[in-house]
Simulated assay, not measured.
Amino acid sequence: MLASIFSNLSGLSVLGYGLLVAGIIATAFSKQRYLLLYTLAGMGYWLSIEMLQSAIIRILPLSEWNAYVAAMLVSWFVFILWLGYRHMYITPRKQQAKAAAEAKYVEHTPVYKNYQPKCQ
């Protein structure tokens, strides 16, 4: 099985795939491993676009190109709804929590009732 796979690949293909695997492994063990997550997230996003496009082609009488455009518009609409939700509900809660946490801070300087600074 393995011999038949390698018999179809040229030496440069094996070298290229080897360098690709070495680069992925090196990235996974480096401080930039988050780049692999960005790559996987992009691949997942495009997979969702492909699935939407094929569903749109089955449902509506559109060409492939128009179905891709419609799938992109649907995904952007969902993204805009998510941003609106974050702006309307999550951001004010975070700001309130931050203000409540800041109200609990105590400075490390003494507080005097009639404090007058010497230099103004």
Rank of each mutant, 00 (worst) to 15 (best):
E64Y: 05
V78S: 09
L83S: 13
A55C: 08
S63M: 01
L36I: 13
L40E: 06
H87L: 05
V69C: 05
I57P: 03
V69R: 04
Y68E: 09
L52Y: 09
S54F: 08
T39L: 15
L37G: 11
G42D: 07
G84C: 13
M88N: 01
Y85E: 09
I59G: 12
M43F: 14
L60A: 14
F79Y: 14
G42S: 15
H87N: 05
I80S: 13
N66A: 13
Y89T: 02
Y45F: 14
L40C: 11
Y85Q: 13
A71R: 00
A67I: 04
A55P: 02
R86M: 06
L73A: 13
Q53M: 15
W46Q: 00
W82I: 07
I56W: 04
P61R: 12
R86N: 13
F79A: 11
I49C: 03
L35P: 00
L60K: 09
I49P: 00
Y38G: 10
G44R: 10
M43E: 04
M72H: 04
Y68V: 10
R58V: 03
M51Y: 08
L60M: 14
V74S: 06
L36R: 02
L60Q: 12
R58K: 15
G44V: 08
L35I: 11
V69Q: 03
L81R: 10
R86I: 03
A41I: 10
M43P: 00
Y45M: 05
Y45I: 02
I56E: 01
